[in-house]
Design a protein around this nucleic acid. Structure first.
Lengths: 202, 202, 202, 202
DNA sequence: GATGAATGAGTCTTCATTCAT
DNA sequence: GATGAATGAAGACTCATTCAT
């Protein structure tokens, strides 16, 4: 008695989820090269061969994980960044939300930090493609708002590129693997990112 | 007639340098796991076996590279941080110097950024030891000055830990593999790190 | 449709047997260090990687071979040594049976002789463990009977330790690699071991 | 100022001795394959290359060690075995002397025991040659006396081959790596070898 | 859809041997 | 005679990927 197409589709989606979640866990502990497919299968509670039923190869698993999670984040981010508020306010909200999610999903946080840094190693032949995903899901939404802020005079007069860079650096640095800020430090961090370390200029 | 001990010592030191420099290059292109010893040897212009003559194993090559470069940097950093200037000034000098060196030695910069992020993967059994090297060579010298600055009121009233984190995050973020600032952006970056993105608080 | 657990278990057991038997053959011709895993796999008719699927490493293959064969021998030996006969008779039976088996399975014979001699070289970190297997499977069953024989006056009045040693030495020596006794010499050997070289004492 | 031929000869002989002694020590701890030339040189207190000045290759070192030590033993053994005494007495003296030397030079004892067992592994192409050295230095001198003893009725009526085998087995077995008899057990051992385990035949 | 046994290419590492000095 | 730096062939081990069931 074969399954209905709907049942099959549901199974497919569920399996893919299992695999991607297991990938995240294993990657966190082992990094890309030592994240064995067999271990991912084991953690997902599936047979090893099934991964190759749903994905072309190891890279494809990771590529899919990146693509899916960025699409989701993009929707989330744009909901915040398109609110009807001053640019600075929206950035602050975004920053805080970002921090809270990082704290809630540390494996995902580590994954993206690490992967972005090692793109050319993990995807030597698809660097452009993957960078495109990040550009689209992570940078572009914020970039627009920063530009608005700089143009409207709300943000300091440095180049938007630089502002963007500083903005993200502070955030990413707050979730380094050997040091993660605590929930109650988020506000301070956001302050520091937006207003700097030194209070006044002469 | 055999070589003198001095001659041998000179050869040894030279070879170790060759190997470490080759390691840096290969790591930049391949990352830890794909940085094959054979490739490192080839780039160094040496036989594969020689690496094992000078180093216990692959990890030891990397450990030595970390240790040596941090020792050197520590001497350099302390020379700046112990000048007779206000804390803010010293930090600014340090930041700029750091940026210039990052720009001058991009392979070394990438190496340390990447390695610190993947400590538990590259050195699963020596995380503590390696973190100790970074603590000693990178963090401790700056930490003292930041604390001074916070205590003297020169820096904004956030916890020194946080200040330290922000400070380093900005710097490190400026040298991400897919985006490195240009020489003439250094001053802007330093400004942004120290005075933040938003000029005035209400 | 996947294989049933029973089918898998059967395959596993069969493969392990194949590997252990191949190990015995290759060891006989090459010794431990030159017994390459690749050659063992070839002789077993399997892929090289499969050995690492069933065993942790090369040592583990040998350890398993030792453990399994000694367990089997132990059962066999105890069946003889617990018969209701005088100690001397039981030892004679045991000796003869031992000799016959040595002649029937010369690779196994060579294996144990050689391995026991080189324990500290083959298993530098598990000498104790492996010696324990031999103690349990080989020595202990005989030791009990020898002690009985000495206590009952059936055996000459030397220390049981020494008797045990002589007993085994003779047996083992009869199967040296460059000289193995023939089937029809077994009785003579047993005689000589039990009654010595010189017929009478003054 | 070059050395005289005599000085050179003396140096040569001394170096060869150093190397052979070091070989014995290292072999004891590591076995043939793990007995590295570099380690032998280190233990001998010489440079690694010097070994290849005095010996053709690794095998040659071991071959020389075997040849030299057997020549020496042969002279020693024959002095005993040609005394004007009954065969049984001479064998007993020989046995005791053998045991004492084994206890005095345990590395040499282990060496010969182990090497004879692994001839075909260590010298795959020179088995015959090396077996010849053992035949000449170890077996032949004793064999003659055993034959005399059997013919004169002094030894039990088993084949001389078998007697020879038992004789040596007992001796060799007494110096297994995990069990070596003590000085004061030598007499018991000799007794057991010559008179067996069971005192009387019905 | 699902499983896990099977394979072999790719790497690290060891070590006998050579050779410039 | 003597040294130790240098080499590369050989072997253990890992792991992505395939495939019979």
């Amino acid at each position: 008695m074969p399954r209905s197409p709907q049942q099959n589709q549901a199974i497919r989606e569920k399996r893919i989820q299992q695999i991607l979640e297991a990938t995240l866990k294993v990657y966190r502990e082992r990094g890309y090269h030592r994240a064995e497919i067999g271990e991912i299968a084991r953690v997902a509670g599936l047979g090893r061969g099934l991964i190759y039923y749903y994905f072309k190869d190891k890279q494809d698993v990771f590529l899919t994980l990146i693509r899916r999670s960025l699409e989701e984040w993009k929707r989330y981010a744009e909901a915040i960044l398109q609110l009807d508020l001053p640019a600075g306010e929206r950035l602050k909200m975004y920053l805080k939300e970002f921090c809270h999610l990082c704290l809630e999903y540390p494996d995902m946080t580590y994954f993206h930090q690490s992967v972005t840094r090692d793109l050319n190693i993990i995807f030597p032949d698809q660097v452009e493609e993957v960078m495109g995903y990040y550009e689209e899901g992570m940078w572009k939404p914020v970039r627009r708002v920063i530009r608005e802020g700089v143009e409207s005079g709300e943000l300091r007069e440095i180049s938007p590129d630089m502002a963007e860079r500083v903005f993200f650096s502070v955030v990413m640095g707050a979730f380094a693997p050997d040091y993660t800020i605590a929930e109650n430090q988020v506000d301070d961090l956001v302050e520091a990112a937006l207003y700097g370390l030194i209070p006044e200029r002469k």
